[in-house]
Simulated scan of single mutants.
Amino acid sequence: MDFHHTSVMPEEALAALAVKPDGVYVDCTLGGAGHARRIAGMLSPRGRLIGLDQDEAAIRTAKERLADASCRVDIVRSNFSALASALEDCGVTAVDGVLFDLGVSSHQIDTPERGFSYMQDAPLDMRMDRTRSLSALEVVNAYEEAELCRIFKEYGEERWAKRIAAFIVEAREEKTIETTGELVDVICRAVPKGVRRAASGHPAKRIFQAIRIEVNAELEILRDAIESAVHALAPGGRIAVITFHSLEDRIVKTAFKALARGCVCPPGLPVCTCGHAPEIKILGKAKKPSAEEARENPRAKSAKLRSAEKLPGGAPSA
């Protein structure tokens, strides 16, 4: 199956990065190389693109689609949590731009055997990096009821988290829940019929999101990855982050605010003694996809793009 993924807000992302022809840029979430190809197309032979992804299929596809790039291209199989070490391995001490396009790719959703979709029956998996040991199968069948409830509430913001967790535990006592279809059946039984009829989305959507986030530790690593990316930026360099749900966006917004903050002394001190200087300048409010893009690509509807620029005042540390 070809790796298909429609890049979200590509023009807005390129504008946010303000790509310099001779610059060094990092795509932390290569996917189908949609954003990466656009960046590479704006770089001269003296420019450099470094791409990271933990999905083996994405790595193979990116190598093919970037083979004709005129700039130097380095593709690294790695989670973006290891950005600093990836840059060190590439011999890079500072970069001009970093892009994150978070969440699950269209290819992962549309490949049934990956187990990301609640619309197709498949083995429970949801691992972006298939070398990881933890899968959705283990989460669903081995987590305690209270822990299931917690991740459904925190990562899925699911109103019926407690009831769904209880139904899952009851169902797995009779038989291991092995497929996405079996899990969807349990979720649908747990959510009252009246709620299901009134809801605008599928009753399993938030639960699948929560399990996927837990399996891939998506939120745990995000804040540190943003800080690492900002530290790697040269003065004037840009960071752009595309998120797809409120939990991701909240983390990005909070991280940007903290990095843009100056003095952190306790209120009331007559003079600043901390010497803390802001690292970035936030570039306006979050941007959303155009109405036309949202119509053509339904998966773009919830996207938000936030960007910031590295301020002078110290050597970057990769």
Rank of each mutant, 00 (worst) to 15 (best):
Asn216Arg: 10
Pro192Arg: 04
Lys257Tyr: 03
Asp96Gly: 06
Glu12Arg: 04
Glu248Gln: 09
Gly103Tyr: 12
Gly91Arg: 15
Thr6Cys: 12
Ala277Asp: 04
Lys205His: 12
Gly284Glu: 05
Pro316Arg: 08
Pro10Phe: 13
Glu214Gln: 13
Glu88Val: 13
Gly268Asn: 15
Pro10Leu: 08
Val24Tyr: 14
Val73Leu: 04
Ala166Pro: 06
Ala300Met: 10
Arg212His: 01
Glu11Thr: 08
Ala161Met: 05
Leu14Glu: 03
Leu14Cys: 01
Lys153Val: 00
Phe116Thr: 04
Ala69Glu: 02
Pro10Gly: 11
Ile251Leu: 06
Arg150Ser: 01
Pro21Ile: 12
Arg250Val: 13
Arg114Leu: 09
Glu157Gln: 12
Arg72Thr: 07
Asp2Ala: 06
Glu178Thr: 04
Glu296Cys: 14
Glu113Pro: 05
Val95Phe: 07
Ala18Tyr: 03
Cys263Ala: 12
Arg127Met: 05
Ala308Ile: 15
Pro312Tyr: 15
Ala240Gly: 08
Thr180Leu: 09
Leu137Ala: 13
Met128Pro: 03
Glu227Thr: 07
Gln120Asp: 04
Glu144Gln: 15
Gly23Phe: 06
Ser81Asn: 12
Thr29His: 06
Pro21Ala: 02
Ile282Pro: 01
Leu134Arg: 10
Ala217Ser: 08
Glu157Pro: 10
Phe116Lys: 05
Gly41Leu: 06
Thr29Trp: 03
Val271His: 03
Arg60Ser: 08
Phe244Gln: 01
Ala165Gly: 02
Leu222Gly: 02
Val19Asn: 08
Ala58Tyr: 07
Asp185Met: 06
Gly51Val: 15
Arg197Val: 09
Ile211Cys: 14
Leu305Val: 01
Ile251Tyr: 12
Leu269His: 13
Lys253Ser: 04
